[in-house]
Amino acid sequence: MRRSSGGHGRASGGRGAARVESVLDELYTTPPSDFVSRREEHAAAARTAGRKEDARRLHAARRPTLAAWAANLLTHSRPEEAGRFLELGRALRDAHRTLDAAGLRELSDQRRRIVSALSRQAAQLAGEAGHPLSEAARREVEATLRAVLADPEAADRWAGGHLAVSLTPPSGFPADGAPAEPAPPERPSRPGTPRGKPAGRTKDELAERRRRRQEELDRAEQAAERAARLLRDRRAEQADADASLRRTQDEHGRARAELSAAEQQLRQARERLDRAERERRDAEERGRTAADALARAEREAREATRQVDRSASGVRRSGPSG
Rank of each mutant, 00 (worst) to 15 (best):
R51A: 15
R51C: 11
K52N: 07
E53Y: 01
E53S: 04
E53M: 03
E53D: 10
D54Q: 04
A55C: 03
A55D: 12
A55M: 05
R56K: 09
R57Q: 13
L58T: 03
L58V: 04
L58Y: 01
H59S: 15
A60I: 03
A61F: 12
A61D: 12
R62N: 06
A67H: 03
A70I: 05
A70D: 09
A71C: 08
A71N: 05
N72T: 04
L73Q: 13
L73C: 11
L74T: 05
L74R: 06
T75K: 07
T75H: 08
R78F: 02
R78C: 13
R78M: 12
P79E: 14
E80V: 04
E80R: 02
E81Y: 06
E81L: 11
A82N: 04
A82V: 02
G83T: 13
G83H: 15
G83S: 14
R84V: 10
R84P: 06
R84D: 15
R84I: 07
F85I: 07
L86S: 12
L86P: 04
E87A: 08
E87K: 06
E87L: 12
L88D: 12
G89K: 02
R90T: 11
R90Q: 14
A91G: 09
L92Y: 00
L92W: 01
R93G: 13
D94M: 07
A95V: 03
A95C: 10
T98E: 15
D100F: 03
D100R: 02
D100Q: 06
D100I: 03
A101V: 07
A101H: 04
A101L: 01
G103Y: 06
L104E: 14
L104Q: 15
R105K: 11
L107V: 02
L107M: 04
S108K: 05
D109T: 06
D109C: 02
